[in-house]
């Protein structure tokens, strides 16, 4: 019984982290799906989302706004607005001018953008860790009082529910809306959609903005969950989310969700049953293994040569 409770606890830990990875991974996978390019500055957009949220929360606290749902809503809106405009600006400055060139060129400008944003936050906010105030406390616990108890905190529940809402909204948006249909069309054939009257520039900018908005949501959630942020905050998370996107099949949105969850759970299970030292070894080992047998990732479509 105790073993089972322990297992469930690690599963909850893993799913929490995994759903946040999935939110960030969407940004990688959508941009890749549409222009076949990796947006390496995406982790930084996520970090800036977290910083904006923290600054907003601190600002609201000094203004005396204390009603938690309102504080979180305003922080979320500010983070999404700042990160989305950042996503849009990044596309405009670093990608659009080099689109269509040799594929290494946008890659390098993406890395440059990432380094620029990281150092910009270093200078603007300092390099120290900044603590997030503890806003959502407490949770449910299961199991006998005197032995191991499985606990699920309200914070973890908030992360699950928010992720679920975002994912559902995104899926509906892609499947039903006009812009969503245009996104799918552009990802199938950019040149052809252009000929058929879709403003591809606008659609590409929209994917950057959507990805950035989701990353900002993840930034707020994970900032609160972990408790502190620093300018390098986006780098590791970005790397993990990128791995999740590749694992699930880059270019596929359900794949990013699945990849995020698998990565999160495999990390927490490794720390839980083996040792925290092997966490990254196992996750990245898993990535290599899956790519060996299924080079397009779990849910990725095999690359078809376009004629």
């Amino acid at each position: 019984m105790q073993d089972l409770l322990y297992f469930i606890q690690q599963l909850i830990n893993g799913l929490t982290i995994g759903s946040a990875y999935a939110l960030i991974a969407i940004g990688y996978t959508m941009v890749y799906g549409i222009i076949g390019m990796i947006n390496f500055a995406h982790g930084e957009v996520y970090m800036i989302g977290a910083y904006t949220a923290l600054i907003t929360i601190t600002g609201l606290a000094t203004l005396g706004v204390a009603w938690l749902p309102l504080v979180l809503l305003i922080a979320l809106i500010c983070a999404v607005i700042v990160a989305s405009s950042m996503g849009w600006a990044v596309e405009r400055i670093a990608y659009r001018p080099v689109r269509g060139r040799h594929r290494l060129i946008p890659l390098i400008s993406a890395i440059g953008m990432s380094i620029f944003l990281q150092n910009y936050v270093h200078l603007a906010q300092g390099s120290r860790n900044m603590g997030f105030p503890l806003l959502i406390e407490g949770g449910f616990r299961f199991g006998a009082e005197d032995s191991f108890q499985t606990s699920i905190s309200y914070m973890q529940i908030t992360i699950f529910i928010t992720t679920l809402i975002c994912m559902t909204a995104l899926s509906l948006f892609i499947a039903r809306s006009r812009t969503g249909r245009a996104c799918r069309a552009v990802s199938q054939d950019l040149g052809m959609s252009n000929l058929l009257g879709i403003d591809t520039n606008k659609i590409i900018a929209a994917t950057f903005v959507i990805g950035a908005a989701l990353a900002a949501v993840a930034g707020l959630l994970l900032g609160m969950y972990y408790g502190s942020i620093d300018p390098l905050f986006g780098f590791i998370a970005g790397l993990k989310a990128f791995t999740a996107a590749v694992l699930g099949g880059i270019g596929s949105i359900p794949g990013a969700m699945l990849g995020g969850l698998i990565l999160g759970v495999s990390e927490s299970m490794t720390s839980g049953y083996l040792s925290g030292e092997y966490k990254d070894v196992v996750s990245f080992g898993l990535l290599i293994l899956i790519l060996l047998f299924k080079p397009t990732g779990l849910l990725g479509k095999p690359e078809v040569e376009k004629i």
């Binding site: 606890q9 690690q10 929490t16 191991f148 994970l222 905050f233 590791i236 998370a237 839980g272």
Partner: peptide, 20 residues
């Protein structure tokens, strides 16, 4: 007796293990 990765942020698994 085990190591964590410097710079990582999520210690929920470690904490669970310590509780166990």
């Amino acid at each position: 007796f085990e190591g964590i990765t410097a710079g990582s942020k999520d210690f929920s698994s470690l904490v669970t293990k310590l509780r166990d």
